[in-house]
Design a protein around this nucleic acid. Structure first.
Lengths: 261, 261
DNA sequence: CGATGACTTGACTGAGTTCAAAAGCTGTGG
DNA sequence: CCACAGCTTTTGAACTCAGTCAAGTCATCG
């Protein structure tokens, strides 16, 4: 954990509440994830009802959103930052089984405790709401439930694709795949539309250890793969977590594996 | 594929249709998966509406339920048999990313094509229905949608737990885990209630190759792990796919890994 | 500046893969 | 009933990729 796990959440002044519907709407209209977040798929009425139970919070890196011993009491939509979903076992082995980016939904409705744990990988800005209030809202607004169902089905596909990656790809392919995936998500691109640029830079949201936990490898192996890609001029690492993609096309090829016909 | 992939589906006489609501109800009441299938969580009205669009079919092992080039056109609830969900890649590598057992829902609503492929691992008996009819039904009956959402959330948890297994467990742990999982599911037990018996027998629904595809290993490795467990008297293999659990407690321990304090 | 934590590099090991061959089943046809 | 073909499964032996252990380097911060 990179920061002390204090639970001071730095909550923002609530932008909404009883009778503050109008204010809320306006805030939502300005929201940076407006176009892609679940809220965008809702009717105006449902969106308003959701806005009424929501409040914006800041959450610092390392804090647990749900899981472990705690009850799953709240859900959230990410505005800024990255959340990691971890499958942790008592013997110390753990595996990151999902990453959630801005505009993604975080939470586990309908259960008291989850086998998974969600932790802020970076400092976060979220729209959060109580789990039970959210469940009630889903009951009253089927369009909200449908939106969450669609997201969950997408998450399931993503989890399975990821599973393939871990089970069948080589170390190099895994690292390349993850880098591309993170680049895509952090730029808010849709899954199908891949960036055309040959060069771009970003700051990785994860440490080497976390990358290894994503890929089912050890951090030393990740480090070696970074070194190899760097030596071939495909990527360059800045200081801290800076990363520059020097040859996106080649990296994409590496992510697929050598295509022998 | 163990059987020719002919598409003669051996469809049963439809037990329902326009105006046959009563007959349908009675058939459903006799259904072997009645207590655990999604239908059981529905209101009488929704269950009836679902029964009206459903028909029973037999599907032979090796047939594709959805995926690959085909559009995702139908969904089903499994009455008898096992379906494998496969992530297949052009270079020949493929990974089984999910198994569905009796009373499970199979399908991928809301998309035209899925990155995953669902294939009958054994001969099947299912209640099947058109995907679009099912989507319409979900719109009209929020309780159906909620039931599917809950199942999907459970599937997501299961997929993530499985991912942990592939990424972090040793070959022995993986084989033991899969055997226990299959035993549990094939006996229709709930996830929490584990069998108390120390001995039991069953016929595995998967070949060695398929087991390897589940676990992210090669079939030779699976075979060696079977041999090792057999040599220690923990399991015994009958001819064909017969399997006997001789020491469930020990197998459970092997599935967790050596617990060093 | 020295301490702390994150990352890199090196040398060695080993679990699982790969390639190859043998052994078991199942079904077919003479 | 046996012989044979076409499978799946088992077993053996050599190899390799990633893991393990152990130093060493680099950044950041009090």
């Amino acid at each position: 954990m990179r920061r002390p796990n204090n639970f001071a959440t730095g909550r923002c002044p609530r932008v909404n509440g009883a009778g503050a519907g109008m204010t809320t709407r306006i805030k939502c209209l300005q929201c940076v994830v407006r176009r892609t977040a679940p809220c965008s798929a809702l009717t105006a009425e449902t969106a308003n009802a959701l806005a009424r139970i929501v409040h914006r919070r800041r959450i610092s890196a390392g804090q647990i959103l749900y899981g472990g011993a705690q009850r799953v009491t709240s859900c959230a939509i990410i505005i800024q930052g990255v959340v990691k979903v971890v499958s942790a076992h008592p013997d110390g082995r753990n595996q990151i089984v999902g990453l959630q980016f801005p505009s993604d939904f975080v939470g586990r409705p309908y259960v008291e405790t989850s086998p998974m744990m969600a932790e802020a990988a970076t400092d976060l800005e979220v729209c959060s709401f109580s789990g039970s209030a959210f469940e009630n809202l889903m009951e009253q607004h089927p369009d909200l439930e449908r939106t969450i169902l669609r997201r969950t089905l997408d998450d399931l596909d993503a989890a399975r694709e990821w599973m393939f990656m871990i089970a069948r790809k080589t170390a190099e392919e895994r690292v390349a795949s993850l880098l591309l995936m993170m680049a895509r998500k952090m730029r808010g691109e849709r899954d199908d539309a891949t960036s055309q640029d040959q060069e771009m830079e970003l700051d990785l949201p994860l440490s080497r250890t976390e990358i290894a936990e994503c890929l089912g490898m050890r951090l030393e192996t990740v480090s070696r793969q970074f070194a190899a890609l760097k030596a071939q001029g495909i990527i360059a690492t800045g200081r801290r977590r800076g990363l520059k993609f020097c040859d996106l096309a080649e990296l994409t090829r590496r992510a697929q594996g050598a295509v022998e016909v």
